[in-house]
Each structure stands twice: as C-alpha cells, then as structure tokens.
Design a protein around this nucleic acid. Structure first.
Lengths: 220, 220
DNA sequence: AATATCTTGTGATAAGGTTCACATAAACCG
DNA sequence: CGGTTTATGTGAACCTTATCACAAGATATT
C-alpha cells in the first residue's frame, strides 16, 4: 500500500492540495506545476513534489501535474467520497459555532449530532443538527457508526467526558479544551488549544526582530 | 539573551507548563519533577527538561523544580503580566464564539474590539467587546497599540482583508480561514484550518491499524 | 556520615521533515 | 527533427526536534 508511510505533515498538506486543485478544475485549468502550487499555497515546491511522490509518480517531467488526474487521485486517496460522521460534545459558544461551521460543504465530514448535559439545550436544533442528552450518545454512535468526536466542553469536564465517550466507542478526538487528555493508546487525540496558538503567535512577534521584507532577488 | 534560540515547538509548550504550574501553585504543591509533569501533560520528561534547559538551569538534581520559582520564572519569560491587545476581524459564527471565548481570563491576551463590514453587526456589543466598522480599524489599532489580529472572515474575503489590515499596521495574524495568505515577510501568520485538522484526524484513524493498548510493563 | 535513591542537564544519537541540486524525460520551438 | 526549455522525482545534505542514557549533584535514609 502506498499509504503505509506518509509523514504526518504530508497528510496535513494533502487536503490543501486537494482544495486548490478543486478550484483549478472549476476554472478549467488543465495542468499545474509544483512551483505554481507553491506560489498559491506558500509551500516550497520541493516539499510539494516530495509529498506527492509518496503517493506515486503522479506528474510528468517537463509538464507538471494533470489537474483532473491529480484531483481524482487525491479524491480517492483521501476518500473524499466516503462521508465520515462525527459528533460534537459540548454545545457552548465554540461548540455552537462549530455546529454551524459546515464542515460538510464540499468536504467528506459531517457532524450528525450535538450533545450537552444542559437540559435547556437538549432538543434544540442548530442548523439542522439536533442536540441530544449525553445519555443518547451510545445510540447515535451505533446508528451512524461514529468514531470521531469534537470536544468543546468546559475544561474541568474534559477528562471525564473524554473517558465517557471513549468508553462508548469513540476512537478519535479533536480536543478544543486546554486539558491534556489521558487516553488508551488506541485513541487518537488532536489538540487545538486556541489560547496557546494566540500566545505563541504573540511570543514570536515580540521576541524576534522585525525581519525586513525580502527584496526581489536579482534576475539571473 | 536566553530567548534567542528557543525552538518553535518549545515556545508552544511553555504556556502548557505555565498553566499547569499555576494549578499546582494553587493547590500548594511545592516541588515537581519532569516525570510528574510528563504524566500530567503527556509530554516526554526528557523533552520537558530539554525545553526548560533552554531557559536556564531551573531545576535541582535529586529534587526537581520548585513550583513557585519556576512559575515566576515563566511568568516573566512569557511576559504574563503585560497584556497584549488583539482585534478580531469578521464577527460571524466563529468570530462571535471567539469574542466570547475569554482569552483574557488568566491570560495575557485581550480582544479589544471586533470588526465587520456588515452594518447590522456594527455597534453591537458581545460580552463587552464592541463591534466596529472596518473603517475604524486604524483608530483602534493606534489607540490600543494593536499588532495582532484574529481573522475569521469568509474565505473569499480573506486575502483582501489581510492586505488591508497589514497595511493598517497588523504584524501577526491568527488565520482561521482556509485561505493560504500571502503577506510581506515581516508579517507572521499562524494558520488554524479546522477542516484540515478534522480531516487529518480522520485520515490517521482510517489508515493506521488499531494499536492495541499497551500493557503495563513488568515491574523491574 | 556513609549509602542508597532521586532527578537534573546534556552529550550523543535517532527520528522526522525540508530543501538542494541534478539526472532524466517530456514538451516546446523553429 | 535536433536543440532548448521545462519540470519531475529523488539521492544526499541539512535542519529541527525527540529521546536515550548517564555523570553529577542533591536528597533521603539508616
């Protein structure tokens, strides 16, 4: 299998390539080179070629990549035709925003239900997604074959909620809480810590000298 | 200066250490070892020691780290006492949620204003943060010495909005749009692409064999 | 006070990722 | 159709980050 050894960072970039190729396809562009992709996506062309070479020899020397072919290849590779059902746990500010975020539009991911302990939220409907009590999690997971959850509960409930949903069958968690969750090895957790992201950006801004904008290099 | 050569990844972990130390301090814990920190934060103890060693020799052999001392050191290092003012551009679903997110509570970051083109949003107040028209950006930036913006506009306005705010003096952008922004070298951009995060999590879940949970190793 | 235990800080090594630079082959052009 | 240009795929070099493993110093114990 080609997908045995893809670096984590490459896996994160493939959707970017896919999305940009979709755009190119819509406007009718036939071919694209790694350097054009580089200009559009701000990724080094060698990195792009390396990434794509993990999947096979998808380009042609002196030509570049055929947009339709590469798009189709990535569609298959990223299984863009299979829709993956996801649940969201914790319908607060951020949770509500994510329910409305519409991951589904032109993507292969769909939030099928929200969950909250707060009875005033249970039964409501946010952009067509129903909010259930946590008790119903097991049913919904079984019905929709859900394995992935977005976790947006308050930080002090994060670990216990994680334990609960893992016990009900969740294997992947996109954790928006600042808590560093403990979980069995079969569970994959990706953390998005908004505070840290903001703080780190500020840290680098404050601690590194203002880089003068690079001049156009002399043409050779 | 000690902060000349800190790896990017270390800078992202320091706030985690800081937050956990705050908790320890509150409960009155005096000392902490890298292995205890490791258990709590799910970061290899050697990595923690390496991270802290970039800042100096903060621990003591056979003892660990003094919580109060390390906390104070990190507070200074991360300039937790200086509040950095930030603006948010694009008061939609996600933007509104982030305005309410309260980065300020126990952190050194404060969103001082929201901005939107939509006149029905202008003048409203979300958790005490006023939403202004984009025309007012320059004034607010000058008044609060703002250099950092959170960008939550629709993707098709992302680049033009970025160009505009950079021209007004913004030097750091936390970009929540899926657009890959082009900017002068002096501008620092951190991307948080929610769709990609979710897709990547799913990708790894689908493509890697279920890892059996690790058994407790035999005690030596 | 001697011994056993603990835990740091770090040299060395491994792992993961990026970029260079070029052989190779296709495309383009006159 | 031969020469020039273009652009891939990849070996090798490089850079960044993570982890191992241990000397050395501090603590704890008897």
């Amino acid at each position: 299998m080609a997908d045995q050894k893809i670096p984590q960072v490459t896996a994160k970039r493939l959707p970017l390539y896919y999305r940009y190729l979709e755009k190119l396809h819509v406007i009718g562009k036939q071919r694209i080179s790694s350097s054009e992709l580089s200009d559009a996506l701000q990724i080094d062309p060698a990195t792009i070629r390396r990434d794509l070479s993990y999947l096979g020899e998808l380009g042609k020397k002196g030509y570049g990549y055929n947009v339709t072919y590469l798009l189709q290849f990535l569609r298959d590779f990223l299984k863009q035709d299979e829709v993956t059902s996801v649940v969201l746990i914790g319908v607060g500010n951020l949770g509500t925003a994510l329910l409305r975020y519409n991951f589904y539009r032109s993507h292969n991911t769909k939030i099928v239900a929200g969950f909250d302990r707060d009875s005033s939220k249970v039964g409501t409907d946010i952009d067509g997604i129903t909010v259930y009590d946590m008790d119903r999690l097991e049913d919904v997971i079984q019905l929709h074959q859900v394995e992935v959850a977005i976790l947006t509960v308050p930080v002090n409930f994060a670990q216990q909620t994680a334990d609960f949903i893992i016990q009900k069958g969740i294997r992947g968690i996109l954790n928006f809480t600042p808590a560093r969750l403990t979980a069995p090895a079969h569970v994959r957790i990706h953390n998005i810590d908004l505070t840290v992201e903001l703080q780190t950006l500020i840290y680098f801004l404050k601690n590194f000298p203002v880089i003068e904008d690079i001049q156009e290099p002399e043409p050779t």
